[in-house]
């Protein structure tokens, strides 16, 4: 796995998200109210909604298209819906964020 620096935690609004563009698709990077940072693939398993544009609450996000809710920790859909998004390892050092991208895995497509 390789770590890629993507910016500062302050570049993301608290209870908000930004996306990171990669050749394998977008990754949503989320910052919670208490400054935890999570990354998940930015693609809702329901109909492909951009999760990074949803409302962030606790360590969860609500998809902007049809309101499925996903845990940012596990990538699992919460509540009654079923589905999973891939989670991506995150490291925060001195407020800088790095994503751990597994190349073999990411290049599979």
């Amino acid at each position: 796995m390789n770590w890629h620096d993507i910016g500062m935690i302050d570049d993301i609004p608290a209870r908000g998200a930004r996306c990171v563009v990669t050749p394998q698709g977008k990754i949503g990077v989320f910052r919670t109210a208490d400054d935890r940072v999570y990354a998940i693939e930015d693609h809702c398993p329901h109909r492909g909604g951009p999760l990074s544009e949803g409302i962030v609450h606790g360590a969860a996000v609500t998809c902007p298209l049809h309101n499925w809710v996903f845990s940012l920790e596990t990538g699992q859909a919460l509540g009654a819906d079923e589905g999973t998004v891939k989670t991506i390892p995150v490291r925060v050092v001195d407020r800088r964020i790095a994503l751990g991208l597994d190349l073999a895995l990411m290049a599979a497509e």
């Binding site: 993507i6 910016g7 570049d11 930004r18 990171v20 563009v21 990669t22 050749p23 977008k26 991208l101």
Partner: peptide, 11 residues
């Protein structure tokens, strides 16, 4: 986007 990773960089 917060960042854009290209193939090269990602590799």
């Amino acid at each position: 986007p917060l960042a854009a990773l290209s193939f090269r960089q990602a590799a």
